[in-house]
Write a protein that binds this DNA or RNA. Sequence first.
RNA 1: GGCGCUAUCGUCUAGGGGUUAGGACGGAAGAUUCUCAAUCUUCAAACCCGGGUUCGAUUCCCGGUAGCGCUACCA
Length: 529
Amino acid sequence: MSDLSSLSSPSSSANPRVRFAPSPTGFLHVGSARTFIFNWLFARHTGGAMILRLDDTDVERNTQQSVDSIFEGLKWLNLGWDEQYKQSERLELHGKVAWAIFDKGLAYRDFTPAHTGEAEKSGAQGTWLFNPDAREMPREESDRRAAAGEPFALRFRVPRDAGETVRFSDAVYGEQVKATADIEDFALLRSDGMPTYHIASCADDADLRISHIIRGQDHLTNTFKHVLIFEAAGARPPQFAHLPLLVAPDGTKLSKRRHGPVVSVTTYRDAGFLPEAFINFLCLLGWSPKNDRENMSVRELTDLFSLEGINRSNAVVNFKESPAVAQEAGTQSGRNHAIPNTDEVRVRNPLLISEETFDPKALWLNAEHIRGLALQDLSARLLPIVAEAGFSVTPEKILEITPLIRERIKLLRDVLTAADFFLVDQLPPYDPAELIPQKGDAAMALQVLNKARAVLPNVEFKHDPLDHALRAAAQELGLKAGQMFQPIRVAVCGRKNAPPLFETLQVLGKEKTLARIEQAMAKLGSASV
RNA sequence: GGCGCUAUCGUCUAGGGGUUAGGACGGAAGAUUCUCAAUCUUCAAACCCGGGUUCGAUUCCCGGUAGCGCUACCA
């Protein structure tokens, strides 16, 4: 009954079944997100099923906060999944499979106390394979000590015959072979009875009829152990596909502590990335459609995705370490770098992340996707951001503003800085000198504004009439168009860099425009006296 | 230390025994425009090192080096 052979041979025509199996011990980071995405893409491309499984057998380190963070991130990705499981609710299965392996003589009890860890970890560590005393312990003695209540771990009895090998074929890395002589007798069950990752994962993969395991390359060498487990449990190993790892610019693996919030999915969300752009970006790290396409929708990615397009070398997420993080890392070097809460603080202040922190390509792709969005769609995504920032604007107003900023923002949150002057009643203070046009002086600025104030009340606030009126005005004053437009632009926007003038005035409206021109003139007057 | 994986512009990548080694981001310059963007054009920028195989290697093989991973009763 506990043998998995009956469970594990789906008919060959069955649709693929893949899983994403995060362990809730931290925030959902970009590497995990990419693994999820590749699995999802593979499932959708092949018409298979996507399964989400929480690998939560490490009760010590699991947190609800982490579970929440994972779901939060996945929800934002908006891809979904078909089935959902939790390993902690499947412990019985794991135990059964482990003991079935034991019953076949392929596992044994090890009464040696657990390693305390660090001691033999660094440097001089030899190649530990197993404790002969435990491995060779007669079954009677083992049973007796277990019956007496002595704690033990259950270990896999890795074959030790000379020349024996374990092999599997990886869809990305090709044929893999390893001598069993190089594989230690790994644990299946801990002394508290809880399953280890290896047995829980394999038992579930077999039971859930997972056909393809697509996961990070950090599991490549673990896979030999897993093949051993599958075979011992009488299950056929699934197809494996290992993904190259995502690493930081310094080549080390992504870590919240070292690299800050840029490795957390929700940071991208909060900074105003479009989920489809973020997905697009992640797909380009370690995978290529091989046709020079870069900007792709989720639909296109699904069509194009294949395991063959995955490459084998680690990819750098080219972010910049934020100054705060870098500085702190410097301060901490050589110390025990265990400052709690700092991660949390940064994660809760996503706005501290400056645009330059992100991988420039991610930013570019986001801008591309933003430009590709329909106006209605974009404005609908902008609205909540504006509202959350405390501005009360109507959807109609945002819709009017959207085309003016669409080509000028890289992140959704940029709406707050790109369209600020549409949103506020009172312009924040600015330097009156900004009002002075090229090759002009304060008098010219005043002259321009004065003219505008005279002309504008009688103009219809639409692009063309404004265009004609203001160009005519410039001509009358003997000024270049640019010299005419700049003082007005600064008067209404509070800065030189802004969307095209006529559209801006149209959206702003006559009343506000005239009021701001008035204020600008006052500023100039008081500044020059 | 042992075992494994990897190596093309700064970054993501395409390619592959003979190529001007392609694309993209970023950078630089220019065009355009009422500023800023967007857009367009152009430029700079790479096959880790050493052997071997070969008429010919960046490509295939071996070695080195480097990076990464695994080496837990973490996952």
